[in-house]
Simulated assay, not measured.
Amino acid sequence: MWKLQASLLGGDEERQDDFLDDFNGSCPLSPLQRLYGFAGCLAAGLACMLLSLVVFARPIKFAIIFTFGNLLAIGSTAFLIGPGQQIRMMLDTVRIYATAIYVGSVILALVCALLIHSKILTIIAIICEICALIWYSLSYIPFARNMVSELLVRLCDTEI
Rank of each mutant, 00 (worst) to 15 (best):
W2N: 11
A6C: 12
G10L: 07
D12G: 10
D17F: 09
D18M: 12
F19Y: 11
L20S: 02
L20P: 00
L20G: 05
D22N: 11
G25L: 15
S26V: 03
C27A: 14
P28T: 01
L29Y: 03
P31H: 10
P31T: 02
R34S: 01
L35H: 12
L42K: 03
L42S: 12
L42N: 04
A43C: 12
A43R: 06
A43N: 09
A43E: 09
A44C: 14
A44E: 02
C48S: 04
C48W: 00
L50T: 03
S52R: 02
S52M: 05
V55I: 02
F56P: 00
A57L: 00
K61V: 06
K61T: 04
A63S: 05
I65Q: 07
T67K: 04
F68W: 13
F68I: 13
F68Y: 09
N70G: 15
L71Q: 08
L72Q: 04
I74T: 04
G75C: 03
S76G: 10
T77F: 15
T77N: 13
T77W: 15
A78W: 03
A78T: 07
F79W: 14
I81T: 07
G82I: 00
G82F: 01
P83F: 05
G84Y: 00
Q85E: 12
I87R: 02
M89D: 11
M89N: 10
M90N: 03
L91C: 08
D92I: 00
D92S: 05
D92K: 01
R95T: 08
I96F: 14
Y97R: 15
Y97F: 15
A98E: 14
T99L: 02
A100N: 07
A100D: 05
I101M: 13
I101Y: 15
I101F: 14
Y102N: 11
S105R: 11
S105I: 02
A109E: 04
L110D: 10
V111F: 15
C112L: 09
C112E: 14
C112I: 01
A113M: 05
L115W: 14
I116M: 06
H117L: 06
S118P: 10
L121F: 15
I124D: 05
A125T: 04
I126M: 04
I130Y: 03
C131R: 10
C131A: 09
L138Q: 06
L138T: 01
S139K: 05
S139E: 09
Y140V: 00
I141Y: 08
I141R: 01
A144R: 08
R145M: 13
N146W: 09
N146V: 08
M147S: 09
V148R: 06
L151P: 10
L155P: 07
L155H: 11
C156L: 15
C156G: 13
D157E: 14
T158R: 13
E159N: 13
